[in-house]
Amino acid sequence: MQRVNMIMAESPGLITICLLGYLLSAECTVFLDHENANKILNRPKRYNSGKLEEFVQGNLERECMEEKCSFEEAREVFENTERTTEFWKQYVDGDQCESNPCLNGGSCKDDINSYECWCPFGFEGKNCELDVTCNIKNGRCEQFCKNSADNKVVCSCTEGYRLAENQKSCEPAVPFPCGRVSVSQTSKLTRAETVFPDVDYVNSTEAETILDNITQSTQSFNDFTRVVGGEDAKPGQFPWQVVLNGKVDAFCGGSIVNEKWIVTAAHCVETGVKITVVAGEHNIEETEHTEQKRNVIRIIPHHNYNAAINKYNHDIALLELDEPLVLNSYVTPICIADKEYTNIFLKFGSGYVSGWGRVFHKGRSALVLQYLRVPLVDRATCLRSTKFTIYNNMFCAGFHEGGRDSCQGDSGGPHVTEVEGTSFLTGIISWGEECAMKGKYGIYTKVSRYVNWIKEKTKLT
């Protein structure tokens, strides 16, 4: 034993070699072989497995989906700052455009905790909710729209109204504003409101030439003092309507412009014939205590009207009353817009006519005020429907199939267009061939041609 100890002390290297040989010859039971080890760690190889990531292109799944990435790591994937920024906006807080917040056709661009709407022409605001041009839906104005110097929408209202708090709607500024039905039992019968379409306001006024200088022999019209197929109006439903009495009662109609003036057809009036105007009328054979009678003290036909040349060209006249009318729910003026808007309103496509005229061709006159909704007829169809001249200051309205029309005794009465609950004068009943005849239409004086003249002559002093 002493000898062994001496050998170990003198030859430590020998001992180490012996131990190493023993270990190498022993069977290893701690580690699995290569094949079995792979069965336990069965993990798919990654895209760049075996390579240094710093030297390969980034992978979106590896960089940002398996674990949260930084902007720089995302930049490695896209290799483009702009594309990385677009991805980053949604990656950080989701897609803010998912709810489609942009209105009126706006395009949404996502941002971090926010979004941006790219608005089409005519709109602005956070969600493109603000109209900035009158060309689109009248700028959301209830009545009139004008573009300011910086191309912003400025709404306005006709006389007797003021802008509401929203700067879009119009509200009454006087007790009985024009064009409004205020009798409670008839307010439910107000005709369907007309909503502004998209309009090209630059070209809204037709490029028409008034044929002022045409000389033409007097034409022989049949029954051209021209509501057939209409309905009984309720008291106060058309408070701007008046009836004219002269040699015979209810020979023509008219509309209240203001307390002192009536507008009617020029062919209705004769110099030297006494005319009485009755406002607030409903049943011409009954006294309903809503009527107001006034005498006409002055007749002003349009300066281009000449019955000797043509009885229905420039067929418009103004009547001055001896005493002002007292405005109330049964006696209310009709609204008159400017030339541009009167023309736009007419193009809405349908209007209402009213009167006490004959209820059928050569038949009896109506006792109760009649009204009828009539569609506008395109000019080409209008011209083809008659052998008589249709001037540019006239328009056609009615039904091709016949059966409904204005008729004798309705002449001078109103053709009105309702705009968001307020009625505007767009025409004056003038003439036609018979009444409600198939293929024939009622012919009306186009008020847009005469609004400046009306307003100039009827100013209240």
Rank of each mutant, 00 (worst) to 15 (best):
Q2L: 10
R3V: 07
R3A: 10
N5L: 12
M6V: 10
M6T: 14
I7E: 12
A9W: 13
E10G: 11
E10C: 08
P12M: 11
P12L: 14
L14A: 05
I15D: 01
I15F: 04
L19M: 08
L19C: 06
L20G: 01
L20E: 01
G21L: 10
L24K: 02
S25Y: 12
A26M: 04
C28I: 00
T29C: 13
F31I: 15
F31T: 15
H34E: 05
E35Q: 09
E35P: 11
N36V: 08
A37K: 15
K39P: 15
I40P: 14
I40L: 08
K45M: 04
R46V: 11
G50P: 07
L52E: 12
L52K: 09
V56F: 06
G58N: 12
N59S: 05
E61P: 15
E61K: 05
R62K: 09
E66M: 09
E67D: 13
K68M: 13
S70A: 14
E72D: 15
E72S: 10
R75E: 15
R75T: 15
E79F: 11
T81W: 05
R83M: 03
R83L: 11
R83Q: 13
W88E: 15
K89R: 08
Q90M: 05
Q90Y: 07
Y91V: 15
V92Y: 03
V92D: 08
V92R: 10
D93M: 13
Q96K: 12
C97I: 04
C97G: 03
E98P: 15
N100C: 15
G105H: 13
G105P: 03
C108N: 02
C108V: 02
C108R: 02
D110C: 10
I112Y: 08
I112L: 14
W118R: 07
W118C: 13
W118K: 12
C119W: 01
P120F: 04
G122P: 15
E124S: 11
E124W: 06
K126F: 10
K126A: 12
K126L: 13
C128Q: 03
I136R: 10
R140Y: 05
R140E: 14
R140H: 06
E142S: 13
Q143M: 06
Q143W: 00
F144A: 00
F144L: 04
C145N: 00
K146Y: 10
K146N: 08
N147V: 07
S148D: 08
A149T: 12
D150M: 07
K152T: 12
V153I: 08
V154M: 08
V154H: 07
C155M: 00
E159G: 05
E159V: 07
Y161R: 03
R162C: 03
L163Q: 02
Q167L: 11
Q167T: 09
Q167F: 12
S169I: 05
C170W: 01
P172F: 04
P175S: 10
P175E: 08
F176E: 02
C178K: 01
C178L: 01
G179K: 00
V183P: 12
V183W: 10
V183L: 08
S184D: 11
T186Y: 10
T186L: 06
T186W: 07
S187H: 05
K188N: 08
K188D: 08
L189C: 13
L189I: 12
R191I: 10
R191H: 07
A192E: 12
A192N: 09
A192H: 07
E193I: 09
V195M: 12
D200N: 07
E208P: 10
T209I: 09
N213A: 05
S217L: 04
S217K: 03
Q219N: 05
N222R: 05
N222P: 10
N222I: 10
G230Y: 11
P235A: 11
G236V: 07
P239H: 01
N245A: 09
N245Q: 11
F251N: 07
C252Y: 01
G253R: 11
G253M: 14
G254E: 00
G254L: 01
G254R: 00
S255M: 04
V257N: 00
N258W: 01
N258K: 02
E259C: 03
E259R: 06
E259N: 08
E259Q: 03
K260Y: 04
I262P: 01
A265C: 02
A265P: 04
A266M: 03
C268T: 01
C268G: 00
C268P: 01
E270M: 06
T271G: 09
G272F: 04
I275N: 03
V277H: 01
V277D: 00
V278R: 08
A279M: 01
A279W: 01
A279P: 00
N283K: 04
N283C: 04
I284H: 06
E285A: 09
E286L: 10
T287R: 06
T287W: 10
T287S: 12
H289Q: 04
R294F: 01
I297E: 04
I300D: 01
H302T: 02
H302P: 02
N304I: 03
Y305M: 02
A307T: 08
A308R: 10
A308H: 07
I309H: 08
N310W: 04
N310P: 03
K311N: 07
K311T: 08
H314M: 01
D315G: 02
L319Q: 01
E320Y: 02
L321C: 02
L321E: 00
L321P: 00
E323C: 04
V326C: 11
L327I: 10
Y330E: 05
Y330G: 05
P333A: 06
P333W: 00
C335I: 01
A337P: 03
K339C: 15
E340Q: 13
Y341P: 06
T342V: 03
I344G: 14
F345A: 08
L346C: 02
F348C: 15
S350E: 08
S350R: 14
V353Q: 11
R358L: 09
R358F: 14
H361T: 12
H361N: 12
K362G: 12
R364I: 12
S365W: 10
S365M: 08
V368E: 11
L369H: 09
L369C: 03
Q370T: 05
Q370N: 08
Y371H: 13
R373Y: 11
R373M: 04
V374T: 10
V374M: 14
P375D: 08
P375C: 06
L376W: 10
V377N: 02
V377K: 09
V377P: 02
V377C: 03
D378K: 12
R379S: 15
A380S: 04
T381A: 12
C382G: 02
C382Q: 02
L383Q: 13
S385Y: 13
T386E: 15
T386V: 04
F388E: 14
I390P: 14
N393S: 14
M394A: 12
M394D: 01
F395A: 02
C396F: 02
C396T: 02
G398M: 11
G398T: 05
F399Y: 08
E401M: 05
G403C: 13
D405M: 13
S406D: 11
S406V: 03
S406R: 14
C407V: 08
C407A: 05
Q408W: 14
D410G: 03
D410H: 15
S411I: 11
G412S: 04
G413E: 02
V416Y: 11
T417C: 03
T417S: 11
E418G: 07
E420Q: 06
E420T: 14
G421K: 13
T422N: 03
T422H: 03
S423H: 14
L425V: 01
L425E: 00
T426N: 01
I428V: 08
I428A: 01
I428D: 01
W431P: 07
W431Q: 14
E433W: 05
E434Q: 05
E434V: 14
E434I: 13
C435V: 03
M437C: 11
M437G: 14
K438G: 14
K440L: 02
G442R: 15
G442K: 06
Y444E: 01
Y444A: 03
T445L: 05
K446A: 13
S448T: 06
Y450M: 02
V451W: 02
V451R: 03
V451E: 04
N452Y: 11
N452P: 14
W453M: 02
K455H: 13
E456I: 08
K457W: 05
K457C: 12
T461F: 11
